[in-house]
Amino acid sequence: MSALAWSSIVSLAAWVWLLLGQGFFWRTDQRLPPRRGPQPTRWPRVAVVVPARDEAAVLPSSLPSLLAQDYPGVAEVFLVDDGSTDGTGRLATELAGRCGGLPLTVVSPGEPEPGWTGKLWALRHGMALARTRGPEFLLLTDADIAHAPDGLRRLVAAAVDNDLDLVSQMARLRVGSPWERLVVPAFVYFFAQLYPFRWINRARPRATAAAGGCVLLRTETAVAADVPEAIRQAVIDDVSLARAVRRSGGRIWLGLAEGVDSVRPYPGLGELWRMVARSAYAQLRHSPLLLAGTVAGLVLVYLVPPTALVVGARDGDAVAAWAGGTAWAVMTGTYLPMLRYYRQPPWLAPLLPLTAFLYLLMTVDSAVQHYRGRGAAWKGRTYARPDAASDR
Rank of each mutant, 00 (worst) to 15 (best):
Arg314Cys: 13
Thr355Ile: 00
His286Met: 13
Thr221His: 08
Thr307Tyr: 01
Ala327His: 09
Asp226Leu: 08
Ala47Pro: 07
Leu129Ala: 14
Pro305Tyr: 02
Leu352Trp: 01
Tyr371Glu: 11
Arg385His: 01
Ala143Met: 04
Asp142Ile: 08
Arg204Val: 09
Val310Gly: 02
Ala377Cys: 13
Ala323Gln: 05
Thr141Ala: 06
Ala327Trp: 06
Pro386Ile: 07
Leu139Met: 13
Asp365Trp: 07
Asp226Cys: 11
Pro350Asn: 02
Gln193Tyr: 14
Ala230Gln: 01
Arg181Phe: 12
Leu140Asn: 03
Leu155Arg: 14
Gly373Phe: 03
Asp165Val: 04
Lys119Tyr: 03
Gly21Leu: 14
Trp273Tyr: 02
Val311Asn: 05
Leu309Trp: 09
Ile145Gly: 05
Ala389Glu: 15
Ala244Gly: 07
Ala230His: 01
Leu155Ile: 10
Gly110Leu: 06
Gly87Ala: 01
Ala75Val: 04
Trp116Thr: 00
Asp261Ser: 07
Thr88Asp: 05
Pro34Phe: 02
Leu66Gly: 00
Tyr302Leu: 04
Ala384Met: 14
Arg274Cys: 08
Arg131Ala: 15
Ala122Phe: 03
Pro149Val: 12
Ala157His: 07
Trp253Ser: 04
Gly297Thr: 00
Leu303Thr: 00
Val311Gln: 02
Leu63Thr: 02
Leu120Glu: 07
Arg232Ala: 10
Arg232Asp: 00
Lys119Thr: 11
Leu272Pro: 00
Arg206Asp: 08
Arg246Cys: 04
Arg232His: 07
Thr141Asn: 03
Ala321Thr: 01
Pro44Arg: 12
Val227Tyr: 15
Gln169Met: 15
Leu120Arg: 08
Ile236Arg: 12
Val276Lys: 09
Gly118Asp: 12
Ser390Ala: 11
Leu298Trp: 10
Ala389Thr: 13
Leu173Gly: 09
Arg90Pro: 02
Met127Glu: 06
Trp116Gly: 01
Val50Asp: 03
Gly21Ala: 15
Glu76Phe: 14
Ala210Lys: 00
Tyr302Gly: 03
Ser177Met: 04
Asp226Asn: 15
Leu272Asp: 01
Trp199His: 01
Asp163Glu: 07
